[in-house]
Amino acid sequence: MKVSIYRYNPETDKEPYMKEYELDTAGKNLMVLDVLNLLKEQDPTLGYRRSCREGVCGSDGMNMNGKNGLACVTALSEVAPGVFEGRKPLILRPLPGLPVVRDLVVDMTMFYNQYEKVQPYLQNNTPAPAIERLQSPEEREKIDGLYECILCACCSTSCPSFWWNPEKFLGPAALLQSYRFLADSRDTETDARLAKLDDPFSLFRCRGIMNCVSVCPKGLNPTRAIGHIRDMLLERGV
């Protein structure tokens, strides 16, 4: 099969270019990460991140034939019609909208900065009991679909609002985590958390485009979480 990969080494390349590779997959429906690992045996200079290779660590988010996803859990047959059959090339690019460090590796600093801004840790101003804080299964269920985020950045880097204002708009990943703590019955800082989001950019730059939902490899729904935060802000304002 043909694979076309975005290459850029800041030390030697004036500008990025697409490099073409040929790979014999022996008809196997490999994961995209397997393809990269095989190509790296041919060409050790190829740069990309990877760790768990099972979709839980969030290292290998990248753009595959135009869509963001995790290389390790995306089989060739799922990339785009014709790729697995060899009729179309597999085209790999770094996540859009973040500076490229090398090849498929992007600088995630902006993404992590936005995550840190939402104070992504439980805050509770009451003394801790000798055992766990109690939480009913119903209360606990409210953070399902939120805590599972793996910080792969597929969502935020597919979001046009984040591309425009990556410093001021928190982006879907950070907002999902913001809501994860707002929705946790054990967190007491709801008011302070909401106050921090009440400006024209942090949250309200979300235009409901929903790219985040369509690319999330864990099936999470940041747009819905953002909607819940909007409701909370509205209620607080009334």
């Binding site: 840790y121 000798a130 766990e132 804080r133 109690l134 939480q135 299964p137 606990r140 946790d184």
Partner: peptide
């Protein structure tokens, strides 16, 4: 228990 106080989202029993 410290982990729980830190916010680890453990699954829960009916008793919480």
């Amino acid at each position: 228990f410290e982990l729980e106080h830190m916010g680890l989202p453990f699954s829960r029993t009916e008793e919480g």
